[in-house]
Design a protein around this nucleic acid. Structure first.
Lengths: 329, 329
DNA sequence: GACCTTCATGCAAACGTTTGTATACGGGTT
DNA sequence: AACCCGTATACAAACGTTTGCATGAAGGTC
């Protein structure tokens, strides 16, 4: 029923190999013949079968996009940009949601491996060892994870975090909670490192809370702990957590930024829509999505080539930060 | 380099066809042989090549998910649910973003057709004719579109809209703006129809504004028009539009719900995060995503079978609606 | 005019599966 | 002892492409 290269060959009176070349190696076929073939193909509505092509070229024209949680507002703009970039390069995109589970992540990559030319891992939860292992079998680009021998796109959350701390310190805060994310996340480490440096310089005390799930619920759950430290400001692991924190604080009668300043990370939808609008570290997610696809396609073409791209972040000051309330110190 | 069925056959000392059957037709092979084969496969790390399988079975084990705008907060929970359901059925998912363009949508479906067993169109922008045409070539399920001969999942936005109108009328509003969405969207029609009925019953006047893009910008752009009607309440096309409206109104010195009541549609993230939290018509998107995949797989198995599922919606009352300000009437 | 190139095309094998058909074996009838 | 049957396996063709090699024609060089 479906029209194949053979039908086109018959109609245009040439051999199938000529049809094939008319599509994928134009310079090898006489322009007139090619025109005839293309006309026949058009007439019949012929579309090359990518699976068959994959079988003989071992190039699928597909990419995998593996992500911890599609519904987390951090990801959709990244997915959108990555998908658009892939399409511009005539690649199709598989998407997979791991539900934040490392096991699922690995299995997904493995089951996808034969069907894609490479995969982008967005904020993977796997151990470095496993990722490195997988990278042997299939071209991989990781977003927000630094890994020897594996291509990566990094958003410099460390720099953003430092700016966030300066902002808080500038406002007069001296007791600041830094809220950890998932233990395995690269960003968690970056934020921790970035906040270490600053602590020494000024008379600032850092209280660390976490690790903690990167969700609204995760934010709600730690409010009491945060308050117990006596801190006047919190740097949350991401916007969702920040939002959970703000909401729960309000329920407990604490105002933001009046009683507590809160900074998020991501500059997602949430930060703009929430009230008060969140001060947050902007992550260039669309750019990261595009960059990851470019990097991936490059290492698909030139097997073994890897690279790392680092993207700038910046602090977006909105309404969730203010000077601390003066208390009798 | 990659390990194939042939390698497994060699190691386990049987013919490739036996290996194949050991995987896909267990009852046709002796349990002991099968155990041997499976052991060999495990040892070699064999994974069946889905593309090759597709070639001989003409079943790909893939699904397409085609969506107008991944970054629109309405979609991600739907995508997530659909993807999870597909995975549970051992299907992989292609995702494609059409950027709200009908042309792109059609091309995307066509280029995907050979690689998937079927596709889910989420809120398609195509004409009925084209969709029906495509449905001849490949199993299709449309979400939020009613179409003879094509499976669909409908969220009963009409019922939700009626409840929204009752809510506004109950609060005392008598001049209400109904804001249209994209001309082609099924939901636009449903909302229009649902609001017609109500208008006659009570002494209520409906002002129609639109069609209008379903984005925040779309909301911002129409505030002046809305105000000009003298209405005290607006039913927006979706939460994003409602949010844009609220923000822009604030910039013009109009308070919500004080000066204007606003109702959204979708019950997306946005509605919860925004301030004031939006009263909105809840759409059961996760359920729709799951339902669409189930429906699709059913019509993949039983070619030609179609069905329609209608899901309930409900009104979620939050803080963006209140009685109208008393004016000297 | 014999020879070498270059260009265009045909031929056939290969990619990794599945599956209809054939074969071999052992056990049960009669 | 001849037969049939069921079970387990092997064989080979087919799915729709691509691609190295062979073939042939046309044109250029000496």
């Amino acid at each position: 029923m479906p029209v194949t290269i053979r039908d086109v060959a018959k109609v245009s009176g040439v051999h199938v190999s000529t049809v094939s070349r008319a599509f994928s190696a134009a310079h090898l076929v006489n322009p007139d013949t090619r025109a005839r073939v293309l006309a026949a193909a058009e007439e019949l509505g012929y579309r090359p079968n990518r699976a068959a092509r994959a079988l003989s070229t071992s190039r699928t024209g597909n990419l995998g996009l593996i992500v911890a949680d599609i519904a987390n507002p951090f990801f959709p703009p990244l997915l959108k940009a990555a998908q658009a970039q892939a399409r511009a390069r005539d690649y199709h995109v598989f998407i997979a949601d791991t539900d934040e589970q490392a096991r699922v992540e690995e299995e997904l990559i493995r089951s996808m491996a034969k069907q894609v030319d490479g995969a982008v891992l967005v904020a993977p939860r796997l151990t470095n060892r496993v990722i490195a292992e997988l990278a042997q079998e299939i071209p991989l680009v990781v977003i927000n994870r630094r890994l020897r021998g594996v291509s990566g796109v990094l958003m410099d959350v460390g720099a953003g975090t430092r700016r966030a701390m300066e902002h808080l310190i500038g406002l007069g805060h001296r007791e600041i909670v830094v809220l950890g994310g998932p233990a395995r996340a690269w960003t968690s480490g970056e934020i921790e490192r970035a906040t270490e440096h600053r602590a020494e310089d000024h008379g600032v005390r850092i209280h660390r809370v976490g690790p903690n799930p990167p969700t609204e619920e995760g934010g709600r759950a730690v409010v009491e702990q945060v308050v117990a430290t006596g801190a006047t400001a919190v740097l949350a692991h991401n916007d969702l957590v920040a939002f959970g924190l703000v909401r729960r604080a309000a329920e407990l009668g604490l105002g933001v930024p009046g009683d507590l300043s809160v900074i998020g990370v991501d500059n997602s939808h949430v930060a703009r829509y929430s009230s008060p609008a969140l001060t947050t570290v902007d992550m260039p997610v669309a750019e990261a999505g595009r960059g990851a696809v470019d990097l991936l396609l490059r290492s698909v073409d030139a097997a073994g080539s890897t690279g790392t791209v680092t993207l700038e972040t910046s602090l977006v000051v909105r309404d969730s930060t203010a000077p601390p309330r003066i208390t009798g110190a």
